[in-house]
Write a protein that binds this DNA or RNA. Structure first.
Length: 262
DNA sequence: ATGGCATGCTGTGCATGA
């Protein structure tokens, strides 16, 4: 079973690339972020035609928006974080069936935060606190859980092209990293780091300054798995190929492979 | 030191991203 996350930076613009990628990479579940699309305009039929009967989107105009597509319909869908009043569409949670039982999948577009000390940064930390509470509750009910998406946080210095120059700037602050550590402390682990990975492997590159060509990037897209899924994890990799296409998303997809008995 | 690029909107520059 393969599960992927990809910040597509406008599904309107990127739909042909997403479809092309799915044809080459027929994953079982694809979680997308930054749709920049309302649900009424979600291209459901395009995904159904590719064999995805489960199509759940949680969009809004212009900004944010997340969607999860899967082979069979998702169940017990939750939009955003219950009890946290939020005008922005950032979290979509649902259950899918798998060969090792039900999987709870939390697809999240974490707040960017813009700049430490700003209102947006305070919103980011507040949002992270509430996400922590939500994930804790979900884990109690669903031992097999996946938390994935665009985290907008570098977990540590290995995840940044310039950890010294960017120390303390957005995506690199102690507060953000502490919030990520506290999510992991709930009983999750970073699937990417379970395998030997080339140094300077990133999932996002700035459109400006030839960021991709110079590999000036960040690893900010993650697939976290609950401890119960550790025996099933076979691979995790970041697919840079779509970033090389004309008019790419600034993010690359992250793919995990799970196998094995229940 | 700065801006650099991309997207959406009812716009014709601005807000946002990371």
């Amino acid at each position: 079973m393969k599960i992927a996350t990809w910040n597509v930076n406008s599904l309107n613009v990127r739909l042909p690339q997403v479809k092309g990628w799915l044809e080459q990479n027929p994953v079982d579940v694809l979680c997308m972020q930054e749709l920049k699309l309302v649900d009424e305009r979600f291209p459901r039929q395009d995904f159904e035609d590719l064999g995805y009967q489960g199509v759940d989107s949680f969009g809004q105009p212009t900004y944010n928006g997340v969607a999860t597509i899967s082979r069979a319909a998702g169940r017990d869908v939750v939009r955003n974080i219950p009890g946290f009043d939020d005008a922005q569409s950032r979290v979509l949670t649902l259950t899918v069936s798998s060969e090792f039982g039900d999987l709870r999948i939390i697809n999240a577009y974490f707040v960017n935060g813009q700049e430490p000390g700003s209102d947006k940064f305070r919103y980011k930390l507040d949002w992270l606190r509430h996400l922590h509470g939500f994930v804790a509750g979900e884990l109690r009910q669903h031992p097999r859980l996946v938390l994935l998406g665009d985290f907008n946080i570098t977990a540590d210095d290995r995840d940044s092209w310039d950890p010294v120059g960017l120390k303390g700037t957005i995506h690199h602050t102690d507060e953000e990293r502490e919030a990520l550590r506290s999510l992991l402390a709930l009983g999750l682990f970073d699937s990417f780091r379970q395998f030997e990975q080339p140094e300077k492997t990133f999932s996002w590159w700035d459109y400006r300054m030839l960021g991709f060509q110079k590999n000036r990037g960040l690893r900010i897209d993650y697939v976290l798995l609950s401890d119960a899924l550790r025996p099933m994890l076979r691979a995790c990799h970041i697919d840079r190929a779509p970033r090389k296409l004309p008019k790419p998303s600034d993010h690359a997809p992250v793919v995990v492979t799970l196998e094995g008995a229940a």
